[in-house]
Design a protein around this nucleic acid. Sequence first.
DNA 1: GTAACTGCAAACGCTTTGCACTCCC
DNA 2: GGGAGTGCAAAGCGTTTGCAGTTAC
Lengths: 137, 137
Amino acid sequence: MDDQELFALFRKNGYKATTQRLAIWKYIISRDDHPSTDQIYQAMKVDYPTISLGTIYKTLHLLKDLGLIQELGFNEGSVRYDPNTEFHINMICSKCGEIVDYESENTKKFWSTILSELEVKVNGHRFDVYYECDDCK
Amino acid sequence: MDDQELFALFRKNGYKATTQRLAIWKYIISRDDHPSTDQIYQAMKVDYPTISLGTIYKTLHLLKDLGLIQELGFNEGSVRYDPNTEFHINMICSKCGEIVDYESENTKKFWSTILSELEVKVNGHRFDVYYECDDCK
DNA sequence: GTAACTGCAAACGCTTTGCACTCCC
DNA sequence: GGGAGTGCAAAGCGTTTGCAGTTAC
């Protein structure tokens, strides 16, 4: 999705297209791990030194309401944001917490099997697998 | 696991076997949904009116360290506790938040396929599927 | 022009911590 | 008897809220 499409989506839903919102969105999709609220805040301060945490939170809720990102709450109270809303596995290192996405033929096949097996309308999912990444071994 | 086995496990790891710890454990495994911290606290107050939230939290961390329960952090900041550490799907109602476990031949088959496909040592997992339960439809 | 948004600061709620008293072993 | 555990209250910290000034449209 490019900037114009995002702006159009905002307006269509009655939200204004501000530079802060665009910047936060671009930052999240630019990363292949899943940044935390604070990481986003720190990154935004580089270009927007006066941005506030309140704005970060409000924008993240907005992006979530629009279905553009998924919020992943973890045990230690941390929250991370994932722009990939397709079926995938979050491979999470139990030591350093790094997250990478994993997809394969088998995971896709499995997901469609489960979807037909469950006799309900599924409207979201989350699949985490914990392991030790190469750096932490 | 019965009371004696639990006590033995506590002692083996250098923890004392107290009535509060036993009661919290029994409460969690007695339920087939996944209780929140506050639900556990409220339930414990019935038999132990002076029990404190601090004790609940410390005991939950202990049970988690022993691998007896899994902590499930959610978006809205809520945390729930799941005594089922085998592979299963948490079927979560997106409206009322009720959670029921789901298992089938296909899910088991899939999990072993994935385990052999991923060339890493897996030490934990979590699989949530969101839907609308019958009561909320 | 005006309604929505931002930034700031205060309020909030859940979790953790510190400490004296108590209980397991 | 001694050290770990409990209960209580205070502190901590991430998130939310309220509001005056600002910006998109």
